[in-house]
């Protein structure tokens, strides 16, 4: 069984985001990059399948040189090989899906795993697009995955409940928190990863589906206002403010 895991490099949640001078992209200075946590669930699932029934796991990322850290980490966690598609991994989801599809289409992957969304961008679009481009089955926001002989059974989160879907492999499965508990890279894995290499390829030339026209931080929250007086006076003032200022009535 061959599994491809697509991993996205994203800014650490503690990073103070700054907009670059072009007004459309992140300022990469002082950004600490991490693997998108949803992709970590995807990778962990692939490694568990490998340990359970045997599989060859390839990690893939679209991005620049810094994205190699994500792949090194995947190798340390147990991926057998890694490939970097050199291109703009932070860009449009459709562009990234096309790049991965162009690479994966004739490689015979039985299963492609990725996070249900990239942390920060939160488009939740790349995985489904990839499945469509490859013409394979898909299950998204998956919290439980079972594989049969050439089949899959996935439990996915839906509004107000869960849904179980079954289908035939190959398939794209996008992982949700709860699918598993990712492991830490062991020192043994880290030392073993030293001996593995990352294949670097130019990503296919693609046309983006959307362009970012502007990127802005949310406006700073104004200071709160403290209402004065006893409870009836405060209630009166609150009602007045909701009516006249917030205009909710």
């Amino acid at each position: 069984m061959k599994i491809l895991v697509a991993l996205k490099q994203v800014p650490d949640t503690e990073t103070k985001i700054k907009v670059a001078a072009d007004g459309k992209s992140l300022d990469p200075a002082d950004v600490k990059w991490i693997t998108s946590p949803y992709d970590e669930y995807a990778l962990e699932e692939a490694i568990r399948i490998k340990e359970g029934k045997g599989a060859e796991v390839m990690a893939l990322s679209v991005g620049g040189d810094t994205a190699k850290d994500v792949l090194k980490n995947a190798l340390a966690l147990g991926a057998d090989s890694a490939v970097l598609l050199k291109g703009d991994g932070q860009g449009d989801a459709f562009a990234v899906a096309q790049m991965i599809a162009a690479y994966a289409k004739d490689k015979g992957f039985d299963l492609i795993l990725c996070g249900n969304k990239g942390l920060g961008g939160d488009n939740a679009a790349m995985g489904p697009m990839l499945a469509e481009l490859l013409g394979v089955a898909q299950a998204n926001v998956v919290v439980k995955l079972e594989l049969g002989e050439g089949t899959f059974k996935a439990e996915r989160e839906i509004e107000g409940g869960s849904e179980v879907v079954e289908g035939a492999l190959p398939a794209v499965i996008t992982a949700q928190k709860g699918l598993n508990e990712p492991r830490y890279a062991s020192l043994k894995g880290i030392m073993a990863a030293k001996k593995k290499t990352i294949e670097e390829l130019d990503a296919a030339a693609v046309t983006a589906g959307a362009q970012v026209s502007a990127l802005a931080l949310p406006p700073e929250r104004p200071a709160g206002r403290l209402l004065q007086g006893d409870a009836p006076a405060q209630a009166q003032a609150l009602l007045q403010a909701l009516k006249d200022e917030a205009k909710v009535f």
Partner: peptide, 14 residues
């Protein structure tokens, strides 16, 4: 080195 950074990260996460 890269593996030194990775080892530190693993310990930090742990």
């Amino acid at each position: 080195t890269e593996e030194e950074r990775m080892i530190r990260e693993t310990a930090r996460k742990f």
